Simulated assay, not measured.
Amino acid sequence: MTSHIPFRVLGVVVLAMTLIVTGDAAGKTLTMAGASPFFVAWSRFAVAAVVLLPFSGLQAAELRGFLDWRILLRGLLIATGILCILTALRTEPIANVFGGFFVGPIVAFALSALVLKERADPSRVALLLVSFGGVLLVVKPGFGMQAGMGFAVLAGCFHGSYLVATRSLAGQYRPRFLLISQLIIGAVVLLPFTLEALPQSLDPTQTGLVLISALGSAAGNFLLVLVNRTTPANVVAPLIYSQLLAATVLGGVVFGTWPDWVALLGLCVIVLSGLSSLWLAGRRLAQP
Rank of each mutant, 00 (worst) to 15 (best):
L128Y: 13
L129T: 10
V130M: 12
V130S: 03
F132V: 13
F132A: 15
G133F: 03
V135A: 12
L136H: 11
L136W: 12
L137T: 02
V138P: 09
V139M: 11
V139S: 12
V139E: 12
K140R: 15
P141G: 12
P141W: 06
P141S: 13
G142D: 06
G142R: 07
G142H: 06
F143W: 13
F143I: 02
F143M: 09
G144S: 06
G144L: 08
M145G: 08
Q146N: 05
Q146C: 01
A147N: 01
G148M: 10
G148P: 09
M149Y: 01
G150K: 10
F151K: 03
F151P: 10
A152C: 05
A152D: 08
A152T: 05
V153E: 00
V153L: 07
V153F: 11
L154D: 00
A155C: 12
G156C: 14
G156F: 15
G156V: 10
G156T: 14
C157R: 08
C157N: 04
F158R: 02
F158T: 07
F158W: 11
H159M: 05
H159F: 15
S161Y: 04
S161N: 03
Y162N: 02
Y162G: 08
A165Q: 13
T166M: 01
S168M: 11
L169I: 03
A170T: 08
A170Q: 07
A170S: 13
A170N: 01
G171K: 08
G171V: 14
Q172F: 11
Q172H: 11
Y173D: 04
R174Y: 01
R174Q: 10
R176M: 09
R176S: 13
F177A: 08
F177K: 09
F177S: 05
L178E: 03
I180F: 11
I180N: 06
I180H: 09
I180V: 14
I180M: 08
S181Q: 02
S181R: 04
Q182I: 12
Q182K: 00
L183F: 06
I184G: 02
I185Q: 00
I185T: 07
V188E: 05
V188N: 03
V188W: 00
V189R: 03
V189E: 00
V189T: 06
L191C: 11
L191D: 03
P192T: 09
P192M: 08
F193T: 10
F193L: 14
F193E: 01
L195I: 15
E196M: 07
L198E: 09
Q200R: 11
S201D: 15
L202V: 12
L202C: 14
L202H: 03
D203R: 02
D203S: 05
T205F: 12
T205P: 01
T205G: 10
T205E: 13
T205M: 12
Q206Y: 05
Q206I: 05
G208A: 10
L209I: 10
V210K: 00
L211A: 15
L211V: 15
L211C: 12
L211M: 11
I212Y: 01
I212P: 00
I212S: 00
L215F: 12
G216W: 05
G216S: 04
G216I: 04
S217C: 07
S217A: 12
A218F: 13
A219L: 11
A219R: 04
G220T: 03
N221G: 01
N221L: 02
N221H: 15
L223D: 02
L223H: 09
L223F: 15
V227G: 04
R229M: 14
T230C: 02
P232C: 06
